[in-house]
Design a protein around this nucleic acid. Structure first.
Lengths: 155, 155
DNA sequence: ATTGAAATGTAGGAAAC
DNA sequence: GTTTCCTACATTTCAAT
């Protein structure tokens, strides 16, 4: 079995819910040819055991005026545990930072930053990000166009 | 008004649904001190007008054995419209590629790639990604740890 | 656009096979 | 794991404001 604790029906359910979490148990049971009660019980278990983390609404970025997405590579001065921890602790408080990953390679963190436009990004950069302690360098790249963007993991 | 076509109540609703789309209309109506019918009508409108793109289940990456996330910077040979288009068309077919953005800067595309481990990534790299035409270089970075990862835009 | 109330459908739980 | 039944909630519609 590919994923410990999950059988093919569980995988099918996860595949469907990753694309559309508003499917009713009835619709899922029809698609997968199982009873409603089975689907209900499976989903309950998948949530309880933490396979499904949460259900969220994905907004249309263009419509809500967060048209500018930046990916910023951050290099810190030194890698003392405390330096890393302090950076993480502060950067995750910024709502503009949707993602922050510590990375392999020649920089320390990769951030995904959402703002309305370049002015707003500049503002965030100067008055928030660049004010954090122990920052050596920040290199930013901006999204020109979005070819694909899904939240569904391949299963 | 910050976002055209939305009043403060709409913004509040979007903020809540971005974090938890399983909130019932009743719960939202209680939080925002509006009637259930109002909340219902607002959400219907937000979906119809495309502010809410979709509602999805977010899985726990660790539990489903997609522990390895790579960000790959791809540089193509030349930027003929057809070269770009062909790359986009092919790369978006790969389920491992969760995101593909055309970017500013000294590379053309940034990909987010989800696989189970380094072996699976290597396999994807050699037999899928690197076989696409007109690829000049691919530089990959891997996620060591996840400090923050949300799908909610700041509103 | 907002509301309360009424109708419909779904979720969630229990029992028996 | 499935089926049936049941109750409680949630969604959806609608007439009135």
């Amino acid at each position: 079995m590919k994923i410990p604790g999950l059988d093919p029906t569980d995988i099918d359910i996860l595949r469907l819910l990753q694309k559309d979490a508003q499917l009713t148990n009835k619709e899922i049971s029809f698609t997968l040819r199982k009873s409603i009660a089975t689907i209900h019980e499976r989903i309950r278990r998948l949530k309880e055991q933490g396979y499904i983390d949460r259900v969220v609404a994905i907004l249309n970025r263009k419509k809500i005026e967060k048209s500018l997405i930046a990916f910023s590579q951050v290099l810190l001065n030194g890698h003392a545990a405390d330096t890393l921890y302090q950076f993480e602790k502060e950067v995750m408080k910024f709502p503009e930072v949707m993602e922050c990953f510590q990375m392999t390679g020649n920089f320390d963190f990769l951030l995904r930053i959402a703002t309305s436009d370049m002015d707003a990004y500049h503002d965030f950069y100067r008055h928030k990000l660049a004010t954090l302690p122990n920052i050596n360098s920040i290199q930013s790249f901006f999204v020109l166009s979005e070819t694909k963007s899904v939240t569904a993991y391949p299963l």
